[in-house]
Computed example of a mutant assay.
Amino acid sequence: MNAIRPRSRRARLRGSLTILAFILPALALFCMLVLTPIIVGFYTSLFKWNGLGGLPRDFVGLDNYTRLFADPVFYGDLWHTVVLVVLSLVIQLPLALGIALLLNQRLRGRAFYRVVFFAPYVLSEAITAVLFMLILSPSVGLANQILGIVGLDGLEWFADQSTVLLSLFLVITWKYFGLHMILYLTGRQAIPREIIEAAQIDGGNAWQVFRRVTLPLLGPTIRISIFLSVIGTIQLFDLVWIITEGGPSHASETLAVTMYQFGFKRFQVGYASAISVVMFLLSLVFALGYQRYVMRRDLEGATTVLREQR
């Protein structure tokens, strides 16, 4: 027994060292690429700094945050984020779910349709932005030409304050709903066929089977989809910057666009860092709260499975 204990201790030590050897490179990259920028962002947000001439020296404390929370543009950015999140939850995600359920049926050419619907997500944001700038051009755009054919007046899609946000949402939906469609399709295919057939044998119609069986079983996938949609909207930058640069008159501006303008065009890096800190805190609070109160059962289930496998 005494000879076995040292061996078991050595085996545990060897196992711990092996795990540490695998973790250290990833931990080093995490500290270098994630933790360090966060710390630097918090630090520079306390200074008035243009990003040039070495380290920041003009310490201003919380003045950048006081200025930020007194800026109406900041609250406009928050409102635009809320509007885009609500539109995504009400239109984009249900649309993706409906198409996923449709493409789960036995349709001729459904593999082709899956590729077609997912293809926009593969395109880069820059290509998508340029494509829709051409399609929604007020003068030569395809959209206004179609409206003219049916007898309607053309729209100033990205140049009108009343339509720019909805126009951007159209682009965002076209670009990203394919990702959510694939998530829902994968979740639907993971549901055992026997459960659906049992519900149908019990007399459930299509709506009842969807509401009572399919939708609850898709719950974890839907919650992940909502999480990705909200976090992505908070950090939205590429499409907005290329298409409108936040205009006209801040009507489509987001937090990331405002941060970029102050940091890289006006060289007010301290103020831009304060905006980045607020973005980080918004994302962090939402992520922690969402995982704590919405995804709690999903995470507990995953933890239980891992423990059983060990």
Results as ranks from 00 to 15, higher is better:
I91D: 01
G109V: 01
I224M: 07
F112C: 08
I201T: 11
I231M: 01
I195L: 15
G154R: 03
Q208E: 15
A126R: 06
L46P: 00
E156F: 03
Q261H: 12
V257Q: 03
R9S: 12
I243L: 04
D238L: 13
L33Y: 11
P25V: 08
Y260L: 00
S162P: 00
Q161E: 14
V269Y: 07
T128Q: 08
S276K: 07
L55F: 10
Q189R: 03
R212N: 13
A206N: 13
Y121I: 02
E308G: 08
S16N: 12
I242E: 06
G203S: 11
F286P: 05
E156W: 02
A272R: 02
S45P: 05
L35G: 09
E253R: 15
L24C: 11
A100T: 01
M1P: 15
Y271Q: 04
L236I: 04
V86W: 10
T233H: 07
G15A: 12
S8T: 14
G54Q: 01
F117E: 09
Q268D: 09
W207M: 15
D202A: 13
I222F: 14
K175G: 05
L228K: 05
N2F: 15
N144L: 04
G219D: 11
V277I: 14
A251Y: 04
L147D: 09
G61I: 07
M279T: 08
C31F: 11
S167E: 07
I4W: 14
R292L: 14
G54M: 08
P94T: 00
F30A: 13
Y121S: 03
Q189F: 10
